[in-house]
Write a protein that binds this DNA or RNA. Structure first.
Ligand SMILES: NC(=O)c1ccc[n+]([C@@H]2O[C@H](COP(=O)([O-])OP(=O)(O)OC[C@H]3O[C@@H](n4cnc5c(N)ncnc54)[C@H](O)[C@@H]3O)[C@@H](O)[C@H]2O)c1
Ligand SMILES: NC(=O)c1ccc[n+]([C@@H]2O[C@H](COP(=O)([O-])OP(=O)(O)OC[C@H]3O[C@@H](n4cnc5c(N)ncnc54)[C@H](O)[C@@H]3O)[C@@H](O)[C@H]2O)c1
Lengths: 210, 210
DNA sequence: TTCTCTCTGTGATTCAATTCACAGGCACTG
DNA sequence: CAGTGCCTGTGAATTGAATCACAGAGAGAA
């Protein structure tokens, strides 16, 4: 695979895929980089750069939608489905469970974990909730290499070493705590509070910014 | 105010504030840039650069926690509270309402909007839900300049012009659709699906990356 | 077929953000 | 009250990403 693809490019592939997916259910057979770009909110040359890394040739009518979609899927979705686990079945965790359950066939939410006895043992949005103690055992059994963290920030700190031992490869972290993991594990932080505060900051300073 | 503060820096201020806030409730009076950095997952020189823009002098024992906290608050939290509205009271919207209700006194969730008759009129996590038709009227009444979008992607497209008319200054958008707004309105996109797909991509490529 | 027009693919360039590296200063030590 | 060591503040250098700009190619017109 291409070793020289930037993280940002991977993110935009996901974006393009969403559009192409919608397009592929319409009559439209071709799409111009400039269209794709405008509809994704990026510049045309950036879109072309991103598509460059996929080995799809565009022509004078643009890119063939199906071919692009296949190429991006080949990058983003590996041949066999990936198992995902979620830790912390609170308000946010449940929203995610409900949203992702069955939406992406290549990303399967196979297990949830919590410490709350009321939640343990229940099946929430089609996903069984286990006690946190069984984390390692069940991650191994389900071959889950990706975890979503939606538990309180304080609780996250102690989790690092356990995730390493369990052989986790990537983490999607919603908790506002820095996870100290080796660089071989990819950490994607989604800090909603920070995003809202950024929005508030720029709302307050009347000057326009990009 | 400083016109030359990068968006990324603003984001990290929010991060530092969270740590300082916790510290300010302990005995610790001073903090080193290197500590702050390690605990936020950034480098020490980056932290120093970010703090440079605040006008707080650090000494040989580091920075005074209270002084830093005050300086960051002065930047992030304007004198009077900012009103925030939320559109789309679904699973994610409710999680956000519950989380932010009363957490930041300077950010008040004053109104929610939906088109579902079952939700309209109810008070959800302390926030009244109005019909979407009344959007402009109520945003004006409450002087809300910030909106959170947690409605389906297709519905977002039609919303742009209404947000402009309503005098919105910043948007926190969870829907996977590009919002085309003038640059005077700050748009903060939080694309959870994209983040998960990025995580999955890097989990699948065994090579280690930062 | 030939001519023209527009779009892609990409080297070169610009722009932004991060890191380096060190001068200057404060705190602690003896 | 020097002397030492670590920490800050910040220009300079570096890295990385986005943009520019243009050569080359395919599509359609006549
Ligand atoms: N909900 C939001 O809108 C929102 C916004 C910003 C940030 N966050 C962050 O996302 C995380 C989750 O938020 P939430 O609103 O869902 O919280 P929540 O309180 O609703 O849920 C937290 C869940 O984690 C469980 N839990 C607590 N300690 C645990 C542990 N050690 N191991 C496993 N499970 C444990 C709790 O039992 C609960 O079910 C928090 O870190 C929060 O700061 C959430
Ligand atoms: N929940 C998640 O975990 C998650 C993950 C990724 C992306 N998202 C995105 O976040 C958004 C919300 O997700 P959700 O899970 O809360 O969805 P949801 O279906 O639970 O809620 C959507 C809400 O929006 C309301 N709505 C629909 N059309 C509307 C309109 N025109 N005006 C106002 N309200 C309208 C619906 O009545 C419903 O209450 C979606 O765009 C989704 O793609 C959510």
């Amino acid at each position: 695979m291409h070793p020289d693809v930037s993280q940002k490019t991977v993110g935009r592939w996901s974006l393009y895929r969403r559009l192409l997916d919608a397009l592929s259910r319409t009559e439209q057979r071709y799409i111009l980089s400039s269209d794709l770009a405008r509809r994704s909110g990026v510049t045309a040359s950036q879109a072309r750069r991103d598509l460059m890394h996929l080995e799809v040739a565009g022509g004078a009518r643009g890119y063939e939608v199906q071919a692009l979609l296949r190429a991006i899927n080949a990058q983003l979705a590996p041949a066999e489905p990936q198992a995902v686990a979620l830790i912390g079945v609170g308000n946010l965790g449940r929203a995610l469970l409900s949203y992702f359950q069955g939406r992406r066939p290549t990303l399967q939410l196979v297990a949830a974990f919590d410490i709350d006895p009321h939640k343990i043992g229940r099946v929430i949005h089609g996903c069984r909730c286990y006690p946190l103690d069984e984390l390692e055992a069940i991650l191994e059994r389900e071959a889950a290499r990706i975890v979503i963290l939606t538990l309180p920030g304080e609780a996250v700190a102690t989790l690092g070493p356990r995730l390493i031992k369990a052989g986790i490869r990537a983490v999607l972290n919603f908790a506002p705590s820095h996870l100290d993991l080796p660089p071989s594990i990819h950490v994607e932080d989604v800090d909603i509070t920070m995003s809202l505060e950024k929005a508030a900051f720029f709302a307050a300073t009347q000057e326009q910014r990009s």
